[in-house]
């Protein structure tokens, strides 16, 4: 057997090894570039919390509607006025929603700013004005006031 230095057989193995090494490096470089491009192109649009904010306002609107109906019923057997009961119910809703959103790392603040009564029939609530604000570190949303018609 020829010694290590003089043994010149195995040219094809050497050549194929070199080819594979170069193509691996090329593929690695291409993949790196693809990963960077993918990160930058889509992050911000995906991060925008459209659904969270939409859910928040929709849920607040629904809750205000049902709180009003519930307040009319509770008013029959209580000394408290309808606006007071609505405010109490919505404060409860606000507290629970804040806790739910806080578990996703989002700050939510919902307050009743005004309960507006019907001018001709002052026992009926026309609309509820609510201050909604949302913040997740990137996006701040506030609707002050969100005017919710509850006179069905």
């Amino acid at each position: 057997m020829a010694n290590l230095k003089d043994d010149t057989r195995g040219q094809w193995i050497l050549l194929s090894g070199l080819t594979i090494a170069i193509s691996l490096v090329t593929v690695a470089v291409l993949l790196n570039q693809a990963a960077v491009t993918g990160y930058y192109s889509s992050n911000a649009a995906l991060e925008f919390p459209k659904e969270q904010i939409r859910d928040l306002t929709t849920q607040t609107r629904e809750t205000a509607q049902s709180a009003t109906l519930l307040a009319y019923q509770l008013n029959q057997s209580s000394n408290l006025s309808v606006p007071t009961i609505i405010t109490t119910l919505l404060e409860n809703y606000s507290m629970q929603t804040s806790i739910l959103y806080a578990s996703h790392g989002e700050t939510v603040d919902i307050r009743v700013s005004n309960v507006s009564m019907n001018t001709s029939n002052t026992t009926i609530v026309d609309s509820i004005w609510m201050n909604i604000s949302y913040y997740d570190g990137n996006t701040f949303y506030s609707s002050e006031p969100e005017i919710i018609e509850v006179n069905a």
Partner: peptide, 28 residues
């Protein structure tokens, strides 16, 4: 890509824009 990102974010903001209030968002 960046143009589409801006357009998507603007459209999203437009869809949820409150009647009385404001939205502030940051992008990278």
């Amino acid at each position: 890509d960046i143009g589409n990102m801006m357009a998507t974010t603007l459209t999203d903001m437009y869809l949820i824009a409150p009647d009385n209030g404001r939205i502030d968002t940051s992008y990278t």
